[in-house]
């Protein structure tokens, strides 16, 4: 955990010309941006060779506020653009910010295939269980029964679990936390940034403006508390399972941490062998 003031983080990393942000009061996205910058600070990563790529959505506005190269692309396409950036210049650190809809609905196929190829990207997905930017419609992550503007009587579809999806397809690094776990988040983002290959960090985050209001969840603080209460650490979860019990809670923690040669490194080696 980094002992650096917010003021210093703002001074060092933010693009003042872009302020104020579009984020609502109480929104969790700013927190995730802060965690990411703290991880970058702790690792002393060169911001001049770091590119932030995003799609479209509230979460995808993050790169605009960071004073570095940034590529704000199209809804769902961030990972595909990022694949081009990384493969064309492997010396760049490529970090993707994506919403749960951006990553899991319209961009779902790019997400799966970038994991399959194991492109060396760090993908940070801010999951607020809803479409924030467009005013609170149902997302592929919206829990059953939750109300959104396009499920006014409650959602009847089964949701996706993005982290489990990433794990099953074979991402070498997967972690999930909530905005109520800043220290753990920073530490996982640090691990993700250092991991060659596709690393995925999902952060469950409050959208008080839509998800909170439509589901009568109270203030942003109440929502954060709720996130904490409705999740369970993977270590505890495994213990419960071993005891033959089960739980409805969402599993958080470091879910995968293995080694697997990334696509760019493999490609370079393969080119060398052809010559």
């Amino acid at each position: 955990m980094s002992f650096i003031s917010n003021k210093k983080i703002i001074e060092k990393y933010l693009r003042k010309g872009m302020f104020p942000t579009i984020f609502c009061t109480g929104c969790g996205i700013g927190g995730v941006m802060n965690f990411t910058l703290r991880a970058i600070y702790d690792l002393n990563i060169d911001i001049d060779t770091t590119v932030f790529v995003s799609g479209i959505g509230c979460s995808s506005r993050v790169p605009g506020y960071i004073d570095s190269d940034g590529l704000h692309t199209l809804h769902g396409r961030a990972i595909a653009y990022a694949t081009g950036v990384k493969l064309a210049n492997p010396n760049l650190n490529v970090i993707v910010f994506t919403g749960d809809g951006d990553c899991g609905a319209i961009g779902g196929n790019h997400f799966l295939h970038a994991i399959r190829r194991n492109v060396d990207l760090t993908v940070i997905s801010i999951n607020n269980f809803i479409y924030g930017m467009t005013g609170g419609q149902v997302a592929p992550t919206t829990p059953i029964k939750s109300k959104t503007s396009t499920t006014p009587y409650g959602n009847i579809e089964y949701p996706f679990d993005l982290s489990i999806l990433a794990k099953v397809i074979g991402a070498p690094y997967v972690a999930r936390w909530t905005t109520a776990h800043p220290g753990q988040c920073i530490s996982s983002i640090k691990n993700a940034l250092q991991k060659p290959g596709f690393s995925f960090v999902e952060v469950l985050s409050p959208c008080p403006t839509f998800y909170g209001r439509l589901n009568k969840m109270g203030t942003a603080l109440d929502m954060t508390k709720h996130l904490k209460e409705s999740t369970i650490n993977v270590k505890l979860y495994e213990k419960i399972l071993a005891e033959g019990n089960t739980t409805d809670k969402m599993v958080i923690g470091e879910l995968v941490n293995t080694d697997k040669e990334d696509f760019g490194t493999k490609y370079k080696r393969f080119c060398g062998e052809l010559k």
Partner: peptide, 25 residues
């Protein structure tokens, strides 16, 4: 690949042009 340049078959045409634009950046 023989020239050490990148050639990749993407998952669809949207990804293809997206990766091309990313590379161009």
């Amino acid at each position: 690949p023989k020239l050490g340049r990148v050639c990749v078959q993407m998952e669809d045409e949207i990804a293809s042009i997206a990766a091309v634009i990313g590379a161009s950046c």
